[in-house]
């Protein structure tokens, strides 16, 4: 259980990192190491070169400009967890972070690393899908932006080239007063979710005026429940409405693995979708199915 031999590089600038990644064969970027180091220790990956991003200037930080939260790829999950700006502007991200691993892993793990590792059940991936985030990448040919819907290319595979580095995540912020809820089902606290649900609602004058509902862990990448989103906009939020429309989540194509069957994941998708919407709309405590009998 030791990492295989490799050569180690610790560039200080993004240009240097891009240069190394573009010229070295079989190189791997190292961010927080909370997914890559286990894979090295278990020899699931055998890179000839490891390019450590931890000393690269200017790749970490959180700021808001014109309604967009811009987060450097190397920003640690801990910084996001304790950020007042994130808690105020993007409560969904704040809630989701409390489910990401443990304090020890969040102290090292980065947002960019989590998105690039792209575990189907990773909470931060679900949040980016829910918020229609944009991913900024840099490569030898310059920089480009990728809409998050196009970011997952397959299982554990982001749609970036081998010579590209994710530099920042841009999250369009919802208006003040919007409602957010992130919930998940996992076997133990701090585990990856088996299935998770992220809900964003804007409610004006007793009616839902905007909705985003995302289910993580069911397929290789989180899916937006667009049918539910469309069905609830214009309606008054009620537990009965949510229960009725969330039934459509049972038709999601679902994976099966050692943790859960496809049918069970579909069942969780239906239940967690409804609960996330109820929680976002402050209905959870009074939902008929949650009242004491």
């Amino acid at each position: 259980m030791k990492p295989p031999p490799f050569q180690y590089h610790d560039p200080k600038t993004l240009a240097e990192a891009v240069g190394l990644l573009g010229t070295l064969d079989n190189a791997k970027l190292l961010a927080g190491g909370q997914s890559l180091m286990p894979m090295l220790n278990m020899r699931f990956v055998l890179p000839d070169h490891v390019i450590d991003l931890n000393l690269v200037e200017g790749m970490a930080g959180i700021k808001e400009t014109d309604g967009v939260l811009e987060i450097g790829a190397m920003t640690r999950q801990r910084e996001l967890e304790f950020s007042d700006l994130v808690a105020a502007k993007c409560p969904l991200l704040h809630q989701a972070l409390m489910h990401v691993g443990h304090r020890q892993t969040r102290n090292r793990g980065t947002i960019g690393g989590s998105l690039c590792h792209l575990d189907p059940a990773a909470e931060l991936v679900t949040v980016c899908m829910a918020h229609d985030a944009t991913i900024a990448v840099a490569g030898p040919g310059g920089t480009r932006e990728i809409a998050f819907a196009d970011f997952p290319a397959g299982y554990l595979t982001p749609a970036i080239e081998l010579n590209e580095i994710v530099t920042a995540i841009r999250i369009p912020v919802w208006p003040a007063g919007h409602k957010a809820a992130f919930i998940e089902f996992s076997r133990r606290h701090g585990d990856f979710a088996i299935v998770s649900a992220a809900a964003l609602l804007q409610i004006d004058g007793g009616r839902i005026t905007r909705a985003s509902l995302t289910i993580g862990g069911v397929a290789v990448a989180p899916v937006r429940a667009t049918e539910v989103e469309q069905a609830i906009v214009g309606q008054a939020p009620t537990s009965e409405l949510f229960a009725k429309v969330c039934e459509s989540c049972r038709s999601f194509e679902a994976m099966a693995d050692i943790h859960a069957s496809a049918e069970y994941r579909q069942h969780l998708a239906v239940v967690l979708a409804r609960r996330a919407l109820e929680k976002a709309a402050d209905l959870a405590d009074n939902a008929p199915w949650n009242r004491a009998h």
Binding site: P3, Y8, L30, G33, Q34, M37, P38, N41, V50, D52, R78, R103, Q104, T105, N107, R108
Partner: peptide, 9 residues
Amino acid sequence: RSARSCLML
């Protein structure tokens, strides 16, 4: 800050 020393070089 707490960190897992098996996951750092």
